[in-house]
Amino acid sequence: MKFVLKSAVIAVAIWIATLLPLDLAVTGGEAEWWTRALAFLALGAVIAALNAIVKPILTVLALPITILTLGLFALVINWFILWLTAWISEQVDFVNLSIGGFWQTLLAALVISFASAVMGGLLGSNRG
């Protein structure tokens, strides 16, 4: 249940990021409103899974450079997770996440991280 809640929070954060001019677009599920919502939920589930599996490994491996940059390298890790999500979504037919250049994707990753942290804190999905 916790994974579903985190996926829904991240899906809303992705939707918020697509409303901003950051060259972030989600295609797929244009038939009905619920298929569009499922497309965002699928992307949210992919990001939540990558955050649970890949992000801890990258965080440990990049710990020295994260310490040297006073934590700013964590944004690059978030960018990589968003880029990896876009690559995974290109491999399926149901949904596609298209991203822009490096800086726009970095800002989109920052917006998604901030929005999901705020919403997760309000809903209590980040509690251990």
Rank of each mutant, 00 (worst) to 15 (best):
W33R: 11
T66Q: 07
R36Q: 15
P64Y: 05
L5W: 08
L97V: 09
V111Y: 01
P64T: 04
L106H: 04
V60W: 15
V60N: 09
P64R: 01
M119I: 15
L84V: 10
V12A: 09
A109I: 08
G124I: 04
A62Q: 08
D93V: 06
A86M: 08
P64E: 01
V4C: 09
E30D: 15
V60C: 09
T59N: 11
L24V: 15
I88K: 07
I10S: 02
V46E: 00
A52S: 14
L50F: 12
A31P: 05
T18V: 10
A86V: 05
S89C: 13
L107A: 13
N78K: 10
S116V: 03
I67Q: 05
F114I: 14
R36G: 11
L19P: 04
A117S: 14
A13D: 00
A25Y: 10
I77W: 04
S89T: 09
L22G: 02
L19K: 14
S113D: 11
L22Y: 06
I67M: 13
W34T: 07
I10R: 01
T85N: 06
L50V: 12
G71P: 02
W83T: 10
L107R: 02
A108W: 03
T35C: 06
L122H: 07
T85M: 06
I47F: 08
E90T: 13
L123G: 11
S125D: 13
S113T: 14
L63Y: 11
L50I: 13
D23P: 02
Q91V: 12
A48G: 11
L58E: 03
T105G: 13
W103G: 00
T66K: 07
D23S: 13
L38Y: 11
A86H: 03
N96S: 14
A86C: 06
V12R: 00
S113P: 03
E32G: 09
F73P: 00
F80S: 11
G44K: 00
V92P: 01
G44Q: 07
A74V: 10
A49W: 14
W34I: 08
L70I: 12
A109P: 08
V92D: 01
G124V: 07
W34C: 02
I57N: 02
L63H: 04
G121D: 13
I16H: 03
P21L: 07
L122V: 14
A48W: 01
S98T: 15
F80L: 15
A74E: 03
E30C: 08
W33H: 10
A62E: 08
L61E: 02
M119R: 05
N78M: 10
A17Q: 00
I47M: 12
A115D: 05
P64Q: 05
G100P: 02
V26P: 00
W79S: 06
W34P: 01
G124Y: 08
A39C: 07
